[in-house]
């Protein structure tokens, strides 16, 4: 299996606080990779380094054979055309309705101007996320789960090759979380995407992940399949898994 993104010895600090302290990770093409770790360990920082919102202090992120940490603004913008990103709270533009939100990247990135084509693509994407006919609703009229689905539709609008998910199931009840998980698997398989998810929802990670990476103390302390993670003798990972599952069972 080929690696689509390779992260090598990535460091990032904010002032005196070291967040990433030598991260090494390979993201396989066509797979769902889930980065787990406690809150505040730098999972979002890692994702933002990959997409070029943050610049690492040192280290390399290779995409299509090129080190994106050396890219200038134009090359980063160009690279981002291959990426979709689902934010934790979906980050829908609150001054636009759902249809305009989904059409936004098509208009801006793909320079699509034909209103009929745009409307058709928006309708197709809303069908894909099982929310047909809500084009004219405002983001403020949507529930948390609906917002995430619409955020996913917007992320898929430009036919990305890689899609990054920032805590896609956080704040959702188990049934909604499960429906989002199923949607992630569906779009990854049907659209031949590579999905990189950051999460601390362990049951969800083990349920849908092809590969689990555990970010701890600024480094990837473990990476492997969910089965390998369960059998790993890494004490912190085991404690993290046990605590998360225990909390879910308790709930």
């Amino acid at each position: 299996m080929t690696d689509i993104i390779t992260i090598t010895d990535l460091h990032k600090s904010f002032g005196t606080q070291k967040v990433l302290d030598g991260v090494n990770l390979k993201i396989e093409k066509g797979k769902i990779t889930i980065i787990i770790g406690k809150s505040g360990t730098g999972k979002s920082v890692l994702l933002k380094n990959i997409i070029g919102i943050l610049k690492p202090d040192s280290g390399h992120i290779t995409y299509k054979g090129e080190d994106i940490t050396t890219f200038n603004t134009d090359k980063i913008l160009d690279m981002r055309r291959d990426f979709g990103y689902l934010f934790q709270d979906a980050a829908l533009f609150d001054f636009m309705n759902v249809g305009e939100n989904i059409a936004f990247p098509m208009v801006e990135q793909l320079e699509m101007a034909n209103k009929k084509e745009l409307a058709e693509k928006v309708a197709y994407l809303l069908d894909l996320i099982d929310l047909p006919g809500i084009e004219n609703k405002l983001p403020s009229e949507l529930s948390g789960g609906m917002r995430k689905r619409v955020g996913l539709a917007r992320a898929l609008a430009v036919d990305p090759k890689i899609i990054l998910f920032d805590e896609p199931t956080t704040g959702l009840d188990p049934i909604l979380a499960d429906s989002i998980d199923k949607l992630i698997v569906k779009v990854t398989r049907e659209m031949d995407l590579t999905s990189l998810i950051i999460s601390h929802d362990i049951p969800s990670a083990f349920h849908i992940g092809d590969k689990i990476a555990f970010l701890y103390d600024g480094v990837i302390a473990f990476d492997g399949t969910p089965q390998e993670a369960e059998q790993s003798n890494h004490p912190v990972l085991q404690r993290f898994i046990a605590n998360s599952l225990g909390r879910r069972a308790h709930a």
């Binding site: 919102i53 990426f83 990135q109």
Partner: peptide
């Protein structure tokens, strides 16, 4: 207030990611 609330709800980041 408008741009500030877009900043704290990551809407500006979303825009940047969409190459805008």
């Amino acid at each position: 207030a408008e741009i500030g609330s877009m900043r704290v709800t990551e809407q500006l980041d979303a825009m940047e990611i969409m190459a805008v």
